[in-house]
Design a protein around this nucleic acid. Structure first.
Lengths: 187, 187
DNA sequence: TCAGTAACCGGAGGGGTCTCCGCTTGCGTC
DNA sequence: GACGCAAGCGGAGACCCCTCCGGTTACTGA
């Protein structure tokens, strides 16, 4: 009678970490790359990749887990130096820039939202928390609605990024973000 | 010396129309279907399909060309019975419902936006025109901003639909649309 | 140390998208 | 008619995503 295990077996843990490192390098190169290719490059079968990361966004979220952290500090700084609504707008712009440099992030966020999983996963959880923080500050200052779910705001952000995330659409994206932030003001 | 031709050759025209009819039937069945399968069902090679419709959204837009028309009348009715901002919100909801019943529409609109082609193609052109009409009415009534591009609004609509287009996300979608419409009000 | 077992692995393979290119055919010309 | 050629055709094939399952391996208890 073997007890059910809660932790990963040593080889599985190794494979998982190796996959993340390999994917991170591949994504960082800027080139598009297939998941099969990542598996091959990591020296594991595709089955192994998909067992650890059932969907592409699961892998993407894991790859950028650490890189998202600075955006939280950024939000804190913005809240300290700008009015909340303005800070929200600026942060969203910063996030768009951050996401624009990281292949697969927008698609991942959209997929998480569309499947009702926004907030689960390292990256979108961080986004949700940051948005919650800013929204709260805005509500306290009376500048932003107090009855809005950060998940909804994150989903809208993901949505507009999915249609205007490209660099050459910066101007359009900014106009769209203006609308969104204005829509978050009270009354 | 053959002069360059502007119109489609007869067989090409036949194939094109047959593809649209076949795709319409396939989409109407509600089942997911591959483009290869549509080509086979239409009795043409996949090469022929992709020559006529380089991207999936090109085919989708063509298939729903006629079905989008009633939404224009709907907008007229709404403008006659509701205040413009309210009419905009209601119409967007109607559009979401319409799109929800038609496989591939949301994806197509997102793709058109993302590639800067929103407004080209029968469906998104109609959407753009309807939004233009409603926005204009709203601007005249002083209820909506007058400096906003219908393409931007259409893109936002496509974006939110891409993250919350599913039936079970109706409530979330409606909250998001509220934010968007509020963001379109003046000041 | 050595089974026994659950956990894990790998890659073949099914199904999809999309391209490429050698062959066929409609159509204008004579 | 018949000829010439641009326009169009079709399907093989490259590549991608993802699943499934027979074989392998790390861990555990004795």
């Amino acid at each position: 009678m073997t007890p059910p295990r809660s932790t990963l077996r040593a080889d599985a843990q190794r494979n998982r970490e190796h996959l993340i490192v390999t994917a991170a390098e591949a994504f960082a190169s800027g080139q598009a790359i297939s998941l099969d290719a990542i598996a091959k490059r990591a020296g594991v079968g595709t089955g192994t990749l998909y067992r650890h990361f059932p969907t592409r966004e699961d892998l993407v979220e894991e790859v950028y887990r650490d890189q998202i952290r600075p955006l939280r500090d950024d939000a804190r700084v913005l809240l300290a130096t700008e009015q909340p609504a303005q800070a929200l707008h600026t942060w969203m712009r910063h996030f768009a820039e951050w996401a624009g440099e990281r292949r697969g992030i927008c698609e991942a966020l959209v997929a998480m939202s569309a499947s009702g999983r926004f907030g689960t996963g390292p990256v979108c959880d961080e986004v949700q928390q940051v948005l919650g923080m800013v929204l709260e500050a805005g509500a306290e200052a009376g500048e932003l609605r107090s009855d809005i779910d950060p998940v909804d705001v994150g989903s809208i952000l993901a949505g507009v990024l999915s249609v205007a995330g490209a660099l050459e659409q910066r101007a359009q994206l900014d106009r769209m973000l203006t609308v969104v932030v204005d829509g978050l003001r009270p009354h």
